[in-house]
Design a protein around this nucleic acid. Structure first.
Lengths: 344, 344
DNA sequence: ATGAAAGCGCTAACAG
DNA sequence: CTGTTAGCGCTTTCAT
């Protein structure tokens, strides 16, 4: 940390006391000080290249104006838009987001929370979806406000901001039904994620209601590779189904890859629907039919909820559900007549 | 900032002086203190849920163990891998990356530097590529170490870590030549970016050497939309060319979209090559032939260079050029016989 | 309108 | 081995 200019150096330069400099440079107290002196102080500060030390200020004021944002994986394209939403809401309000990529690992996540706590963030936005999260109870006791984004996290009574998973799945099922599909598969994410579970359960129920058969297979991670792997074994079993709904676009991407490798045409022989409408879902081949989740809005709303907790000094386990919409692209089509797609 | 447990509370609880607590809790000085006392202190700290205040520590030690990372756009998929590389290098060394998304706007970038300076980061990694960057000279004067990642930034003598643009373009041109292409177009990025300029210049030169005609058109931003727009006007002109090399995968994506809209088949009627091999470039339709830049390595190496500047207390304008490789996928193919792709 | 002085939480000499 | 003391850079009473 290269030695930086301090208040007292500015004070000496301007020939006033540090307190005066502090007042002159702080917009809120600027009016207190003589206009001429203030100008002199400002000039001195500029000449010296003064940059306030925000840590010293925070130490004194007991407020950091920061919020810790914990996400499981920055390289997952659904998170950058959420982050953008958060920052866009925070910045005009004087808050700064401190980002932490936990890499999906519980250990790193623990250290992320610790590291951010050491920085005395005023609150957290947590987008990691592990249920039974070991840290949340600890955090809760410490009284720091937390908002859960995108995924719930079990028993802790924190506000949760999420897309409408049920509605999204319903829309997907309706779409498939209209296209004549009767036998479908749901590629679920790890059931330790609340969203994965909700989507899977809703899928089963919605299919029942619609009079469709639905089989659920579970991927061990929300990645394209896992989606591919699961689909490989699925196709090897030569079951009868004509459509696959994946819990996540990344999983759906893996499904698409597997189909391609198996020489199965999508959507002619197999329809595929994802979830999230992540950036570039449109570019997949074929363009992915999916449920659009308002990712940036989730970020914005999470930040808003956190600010609310901050100002009210308390929070309730409110759930904010944002509307989703089905985006029909090229990966879904009429169900093949025979319905024996995997048995040529 | 909710009131947190302080050292002195732990001290009271353990029945010792704060200094002893500080020593007991700091691994480096832990050996100085009586084993039994240390245990008692640790117990007290744990019971109270003590979390050190890192700002107070930094204030005292004059070292924050943080580096500021400034990127122009978090939603551009080339950056998350770089960030991962940076963090992976930094974390084991006790450093934390403070991220700042400048959104590509000069104003925000200014405030990013300011905000990070106020946090007294020990150094910067800047991945924003504006030449004539107004802030760099200022930063330079302040003596804070800086490393430029991915894109150079003009006259300031900072280390630069980048992929081998020349080699990448050469490889692309060779590839096109082998496929029989003789008339090509380079879709350049804004020439205010150093990489855009280098790629464009190398392209022109390499084509000359290879005996190919090369036309350069400039996009106003490194986005798919701009790539699309540029290609639209290009196709409207009905020029003779059989391949397009884009300065960036995002631009190439736009090219692909435009071709599709114009009913032009890729690669049968028009070959396309990108640059970067961004995540998901493989998923485009068709899968994008491109130059793979080791994004994560660029991050890692940038961090390494910064650590070096930090420990040596000085830095030189060294340029670290990382090797790139051509990834051939489905978007390039044999040049059409006639070479009059846009004049059916 | 400005100065003096205290103190945020921590570490690092310096004593003992 | 442990306590005392000072001070990092800043804001905020309290005086003047």
């Amino acid at each position: 940390m290269p030695k930086q200019v301090t208040l007292s150096e500015v004070a000496t330069r301007a020939g006033v006391h540090v307190a005066t400099v502090s007042r002159a440079l702080n917009p809120a107290t600027r009016s207190i000080v003589n206009e001429k002196t203030a100008r002199r102080v400002e000039a001195a500060a500029k000449e010296l290249g003064y940059v306030p030390n925000i840590m010293a200020r925070s130490l004194r004021t007991q407020s950091t104006m920061t919020v810790g944002v914990i996400i499981p994986d920055l390289t997952n394209p659904i998170f950058p838009p959420m982050i953008r939403g958060i920052e866009n809401y925070l910045a005009p309000r004087g808050y700064t987001a401190l980002l932490s990529d936990s890499d999906g690992k519980a250990a790193l996540e623990r250290s992320a929370v610790t590291s951010l706590s050491e920085r005395r963030v005023d609150g957290f936005i947590i987008a990691t979806g592990l249920e039974q999260h070991p840290l949340l109870p600890t955090l809760f006791e410490s009284g720091v406000p937390v908002v859960l984004a995108n995924r719930g996290a079990g028993e802790v009574p924190y506000p949760l901001v999420t897309g409408n998973d049920e509605a999204g799945i319903q829309a997907a099922v309706s779409h498939l039904k209209e296209l004549g599909h009767r036998d479908v598969v749901h590629v679920a994410g790890p059931q330790s994620f609340s969203t994965s579970r909700i989507r899977a359960e809703t899928m089963v129920r919605a299919c029942e209601v619609a009079g469709m058969r639905c089989r659920v297979v579970e991927a061990t991670a929300l990645t394209a590779d896992e989606g591919e792997k699961v689909t490989d074994t699925l196709l090897a079993e030569k079951q009868n189904f004509t459509a696959i709904q994946a819990s996540t676009d990344l999983l759906a991407l893996g499904v698409l890859r597997s189909l391609r490798r198996h020489g199965m045409r999508c959507p002619e022989e197999m329809s595929v629907i994802g979830f999230n409408d992540m950036p570039f879902a449109e570019e997949f081949s074929p363009g992915l039919t999916t449920v659009r989740v308002p990712l940036e809005d989730i970020g914005t709303e999470s930040a808003r909820q956190l600010m609310r907790s901050l100002s009210e000094g308390s929070s309730s386990p409110i759930v904010v559900t944002l509307p989703v919409s089905l985006i029909v692209r090229a990966s879904t089509g009429q169900a093949p007549r025979a319905g024996v797609s995997t048995q040529p």
